[in-house]
Amino acid sequence: MSDRSNTLATIRDNALWMRRRAMSMVHSAQLGHIGGDFSATDIVATLFFGVLNFDPDQPRKPDRDRFVMSKGHATGVLYTALCRAGYYPEAWLDTYMQAGSRLNGHPNRQYLPGVEANTGPLGHGLPIATGIAIAGQIDASNYRTFVLTGDGEIQEGSNWEAAMTASHRKLKNLTVIIDRNRLQQGQSTEETTAVDPLPDKWAAFGWDVIEVDGHDHAQLLDVLGAAPRDKPRAIIANTIKGKGVSFMENDAKWHHGVPSDEEFAQAMKELV
């Protein structure tokens, strides 16, 4: 196979492993946000196994690319990616959300290598990533900064302050990916506080805007790996909440729902 084919196969295999492992973690803990984990899995797998420059043996290496998980409740996808990438042993995943575990309900950079920022309160990740990108611009460093937000999270005003700043400073080293699954806690984003037309809004703030299928690894690899332009980039990734499990897909209750034993068994049959 070609290098690209090998990369896409690696992304696909890791995405499946991440979904199965996250499902096991959430079922065991009876806590988590599996619907948002699964909408973001293909995005995160593509970043970690096809795009990002990092070294798990040197997690603070100065020239590493930075990834900020702004939707900090989606720890199932973040922790499985970091584990699979070699930052810590798989046994740690078995402690997910247990008392004294490093694997909290929201990521903490003091506890886990590979976590760039503590997130949880929504709307913080993009401002933090903007600051990281500004530091890289000042230092003339080559690293890139990626941040993944939820689409409900875009309702937070701090995102738009950061978007203005990033555009003003022409932060071509900054990419935001919006997990556009159209559901947040309880109901749709458009019923809560409408965010459409999302592409037009990012473009109006001076960003290079691209829409993709957030579950198409080839599309994601192309846009996430593309060379920066002269402005920050916003990738609107159209996704499905609960992607990969039939009874979870496009159902808002799985924002923070946890599977019963029967649901877990059915989900694991489907995740193949």
Rank of each mutant, 00 (worst) to 15 (best):
G105C: 05
D57M: 14
V212L: 10
D63Y: 04
N108F: 11
V44S: 07
S188M: 06
R144G: 05
Q58E: 15
T7M: 14
V77D: 02
H215E: 12
H168Q: 14
L221G: 05
S158F: 05
N14Y: 14
K243L: 00
E190K: 08
A22F: 03
A117S: 10
G257E: 06
F54W: 09
A267W: 09
H27N: 06
I235C: 05
L82K: 02
D65L: 08
P197V: 09
E153I: 05
W207P: 00
V223W: 12
P197N: 06
G225D: 10
G72T: 02
R20K: 10
A133T: 02
W92R: 09
H27T: 04
D261Y: 08
L122A: 04
F264H: 15
Y79T: 07
R12G: 06
I34H: 04
T80K: 00
F48N: 00
Y143V: 03
V209W: 02
I240S: 01
T80Q: 02
Y79P: 08
R4M: 11
G125Q: 03
K231H: 10
D251C: 03
L31Y: 11
T95G: 09
D208C: 10
A252S: 15
E263Y: 11
L171T: 02
T192G: 08
A166C: 08
P89S: 15
S158A: 11
T95V: 02
L31G: 08
D222W: 08
H168S: 13
I177N: 03
P197T: 07
A226W: 02
R19P: 03
M23H: 04
D200W: 13
G35P: 01
T193N: 15
K170T: 08
S167M: 12
A9R: 13
R84E: 13
V195C: 09
V115I: 14
A227G: 07
A9P: 11
E262K: 13
W17K: 13
A129P: 03
W92C: 10
G157D: 10
L126T: 09
D208W: 12
G86L: 10
F67V: 01
T119S: 12
N6H: 13
M69Y: 06
L47T: 00
G105V: 01
G123A: 04
R4Q: 15
M164E: 08
R229V: 13
P259N: 02
Q187S: 15
D3K: 15
P89W: 07
P259S: 12
R102V: 12
P62A: 04
E249N: 09
W160N: 02
F247N: 13
A22W: 02
G136H: 03
F49S: 01
T145G: 01
P113I: 11
M164N: 10
M25P: 07
Q184S: 04
A226I: 03
D216C: 14
F67H: 03
R64G: 02
I178G: 00
A9H: 12
G242F: 04
A40P: 00
P56A: 00
Y79A: 03
L122R: 07
D94W: 07
P113G: 06
R60Y: 13
S141F: 06
V26N: 01
A226T: 13
D13I: 05
A29H: 01
A74S: 14
F67R: 01
L31D: 09
L174C: 04
